[in-house]
Simulated scan of single mutants.
Amino acid sequence: MSAQLIAAVRRGETAEAEKLLAGGADASTRETTTGLTVLMIAAGQADAPTVRELIRGGADVHTADRRAGATALHKACQGGSLEVVRALVEAGSFVDAVAPTTGHTALMDALWYKYPDIAEYLLGQGASLKVYTHYGFSLEQHFEYELNVNTFGKDKLLEAERHLNARRERDAAAVARQQLMAATAEGNTELAGKLLADGAKVDERSPDLGSFNDSHTPLLVAARDGHAEIVRLLLDAGADVNAVEPTFGAVPLHKAVYNGHAGITADLVRQDGTDLDFQGATNGYTPLHDSLWHGYEECARTLVEAGARLDLVGHDGKTPLDLAVEVFGAEHSLTGLIRDRAAA
């Protein structure tokens, strides 16, 4: 059945692929000779109907090919179908996924293959401009090189350059506009309070500039950087206490405990709706895991006493008790508290 599905996708026979998937074929089937999944094959062939069918069938949009490490989104940028790119992004493809052999992101490939419409779309989805190839080129140098070595299709590259410049201008305007984020980053409580009173958007996210604050809300930054008074102002203004930043998949409570901010931890724990047990995407750690990992006893005690779950495991298989023993020792009072609560 796997061979039949590969053949159907290679021929662009969407109806046959749909029939095979309904019959139990694996939507993430991989071709042995090329190392490509059927989703990558369809994406590279710019076959939007088959791509959509495979996604509906459960195809993994994140997996990489076995030779270059590229994702289906990279292949879609080679195939040149904006419709395919859009379908993959809407299905959860990571726009800044890096191919381990080249260091290329999807945006770099869209520029390389001269598809300005795809480049424009990816830029609109927040694709990073601060990326580097594994052969030492920044995105800007990569693009400049392409301009110099191409004679055919140079008009498309110049169109893509206009989109790049427009994105840079939008980013600069967003930075200038986000006075609340600037005040938060500076720890300027007075200005932050005034801006909130004047109606500043409390959960507006910072643009992706290749910085520590990319796609962060002010609350994520304030919790991370220890600006306790600003945290309280933001919470009073209705800030999303469970806002997730995309780099590590962390929430404000992770940020606070990771840096040992006990007072902020207590404020966040007391806030209605705070998810004490959110597991970060990078390592599966909850805020309690993070507080123990970094040795912040007061933060950990606050979470345990607030009822944080003790049975969740990180991607390394460790429970909070495992980390408490590892960091504080088996006889420490905090370890004893966690052991007793876990046994209750």
Rank of each mutant, 00 (worst) to 15 (best):
G238C: 10
Q271E: 13
A185C: 09
G260S: 03
E31C: 04
P218R: 00
A300W: 07
D340V: 09
T274L: 08
G136E: 10
D277M: 09
L123A: 03
A27R: 07
G295I: 01
V84T: 15
A160Q: 05
K156F: 09
G199Y: 01
L196Q: 02
V98L: 00
T282W: 00
D311K: 03
L191W: 00
H142F: 15
V51D: 07
H142S: 10
D198V: 01
Y132N: 15
A250T: 05
G126C: 06
G80N: 05
K75A: 11
Y115L: 02
V149M: 14
A25Y: 03
F94Y: 13
G329W: 06
E331I: 03
E305M: 11
V251S: 13
S93D: 06
A192S: 13
L20Y: 06
G153W: 08
A172S: 14
D214N: 11
V9Y: 00
N148F: 12
R56L: 08
P218Q: 05
L73R: 12
T32M: 07
A223K: 06
A228T: 13
E190V: 13
T274K: 08
D240M: 07
G12S: 03
A106Q: 01
V231R: 06
I230E: 05
D198C: 00
V269P: 08
G58P: 12
Q179F: 00
H62R: 14
R170L: 14
F143T: 12
T286I: 01
G80P: 04
P49M: 09
R167M: 11
T189M: 00
A43M: 05
G24T: 01
L235Y: 09
A3G: 06
G103T: 00
L195F: 10
L234H: 09
V149R: 15
E161T: 12
Q141Y: 05
T282G: 01
A228L: 06
S211D: 13
L337V: 10
V221F: 00
H227M: 10
E326A: 13
G58I: 07
P100Y: 02
Y145T: 14
L20H: 03
A87L: 08
D322Y: 02
A183M: 06
K156P: 02
V149G: 09
A119E: 08
G193E: 01
I338Y: 07
S28A: 04
E229T: 05
A174L: 13
G80I: 09
A262K: 10
D208R: 15
S128P: 10
